[in-house]
Design a protein around this nucleic acid. Sequence first.
DNA 1: CATGAATGAGTGTTCATTCAT
DNA 2: AATGAATGAACACTCATTCAT
Lengths: 196, 196, 196, 196
Amino acid sequence: MQARATTPEAVEAKREAILDAALALFAERGYHGTSVPSIAKEAGVGAGTLYRYFEAKETLVNALFLREKERVLQHVMDGFDPSAPPRDQFHHFWSRVVAYGRERAESFRFLEHHHHAPYLDDSSRALESQVRDLAATIIAQVQAVRVFKPVDPQALITVVWGSVVMLMKEHYTGGCPLTDQLVQQTEDLCWEAIRL
Amino acid sequence: MQARATTPEAVEAKREAILDAALALFAERGYHGTSVPSIAKEAGVGAGTLYRYFEAKETLVNALFLREKERVLQHVMDGFDPSAPPRDQFHHFWSRVVAYGRERAESFRFLEHHHHAPYLDDSSRALESQVRDLAATIIAQVQAVRVFKPVDPQALITVVWGSVVMLMKEHYTGGCPLTDQLVQQTEDLCWEAIRL
Amino acid sequence: MQARATTPEAVEAKREAILDAALALFAERGYHGTSVPSIAKEAGVGAGTLYRYFEAKETLVNALFLREKERVLQHVMDGFDPSAPPRDQFHHFWSRVVAYGRERAESFRFLEHHHHAPYLDDSSRALESQVRDLAATIIAQVQAVRVFKPVDPQALITVVWGSVVMLMKEHYTGGCPLTDQLVQQTEDLCWEAIRL
Amino acid sequence: MQARATTPEAVEAKREAILDAALALFAERGYHGTSVPSIAKEAGVGAGTLYRYFEAKETLVNALFLREKERVLQHVMDGFDPSAPPRDQFHHFWSRVVAYGRERAESFRFLEHHHHAPYLDDSSRALESQVRDLAATIIAQVQAVRVFKPVDPQALITVVWGSVVMLMKEHYTGGCPLTDQLVQQTEDLCWEAIRL
DNA sequence: CATGAATGAGTGTTCATTCAT
DNA sequence: AATGAATGAACACTCATTCAT
């Protein structure tokens, strides 16, 4: 039995525990490969309790997607200096993403694996395009000061984001170790690609 | 009812039909999200028939992985001219990959989604590392003639492959249309990244 | 719907209900001829519930085998007087076995039918040989006091046990009614066979 | 492909081959544990061919039961001398049954295992009671000349038949080796049981 | 006539979800 | 509010039977 401390904090803590458990399992085994009872067990709650916090497995995965997407965004943007030189801004972005992928591997893997999964709902998708729009805006500004090449911002996003994602993916699958040198070289390559 | 043509061609055709059905569904819903009966239905055969061609669901996904991996390799390598200038070679590679991803979207998505999945067997993994080795070899040659930057070949692979994969992924999820201009610009960006 | 009484008694009762249902069906149709859903239905529980109590069909049949084997042993040994004259002891054995076979026909048939079945596990087999050893020990004692014929104890077991089993089998298959006279006469015949 | 020699002999030979295959498999794995294709394979015929000889799996098992029941009867009765002394007749019976159980273990096991199985039809059951009646008649004759005890013939049958069956069963399950001494002693015990 | 590829109902088993406690 | 036993539909897979060849 559990104490019945129904303070908002305790409720939130349990919600987070469930999301944490789900994150670990979804990242490891995927959405369809993870059973709801196993999430409940990992979270240390009863299977029925989970349904007091999330209407269904799908609701849970969407809530998790939102939480993690916001988390990575916050992490990457944290400490971003709008007035710093673009090369420094780019380095900040790159190293923050890599740090996140290293420290919060489950989150990063989960987000990549569940990108545009059919069970994600509109709000999850909305956040995805919101992030993209934000990126496009920032890029346009840097293009305006003739630091980035004057191409479709989407091309720049594709190269940079595709490269970091691939870098981390190879790391997770054990394809190659994520050495500081590799991180550095990939960053430099990308910078060469996008800078004017 | 189905014709019972027992010619090797007919047998092969049915095997291919099952693989095609599996490809469409695995690409759309993933391995665990796809039921064997749904594959059989899509292929227009009985559920039991599938098991005459593949021992188990896992056997099927591995056979499919091998077929598609070989298919994409063949497609990309087709017409490759070892004596052409590196820039032309790169353009050949890029446009062949994009063409494959356009024409055989399911195959491309399936391969990306099932990269290093835990149900892939040794031969599937062997093929994966074989492809990687081939790429590393080619890259090393181009580096030797001082056309690519003298960095870890893995960094070059990461940027180029990460970029095409992201390019196609965005196309599939409807994030942005795959215009000729975007394809062209991304290719150019990548070339800038890797060339000395 | 079912009450959700989580008392140990209620849990045990459901476990027993499943074992009872399995007993009836295994006795009637055999192990391979009985489907798990049919057991669940007979027990009045859902198919999934059965798997909360028994890991697999094989686990269930072994648990049942142990329960019934111990039950018949207990029943036969109940009231056995080690100091009574051998003829009385034999009568006790005989009438207890026949009574068990009458009252618990399904149990008797199940045990005979599943004797040495390939899906029985080590503990089931251990119990079988334990029973045999007990019988051999008792027989040897009676032989020592020159009441049973000085032959291989196995010969005595074979005749006595073979006779009761056949007596009950004929009863079950409707071959002949199990009259008191027949029971009595068969007992006497067996006694004649084994006594010195 | 197979020669199309549709002589009655060839037809009969194929029928027998199927029955032989079924005997081996039913004896080993039981009725429900044996698949029809496995019988066809063992018999060296196509699965469809089997259905030209037997309407269904049930028809096959019944035909097999009749064949084997008649076979054991014939074997036991072969060489029986109606004018021989009863003890010699009994020895003949006993040794013929044991010999059959030794030489045709599959047949013996099949018959015992399928005694009164729910899928046996009326003609199989009719043969069973026919055999019992024959036995009862013979026994009555021997009782008339005051050689067997004047009890219900069923009691005599039960003890004798129950004993041989148990003797063979223990042999098959590896419970104890079927030594000549054990066979001899069991025979003697049974004779003691039934003789006046 | 003989075949074996094809079938789909049925198997043992799992799991998202509910609800009595 | 929290639980976890219970459920039954759905899963991967098998097999008795059919029928085009």
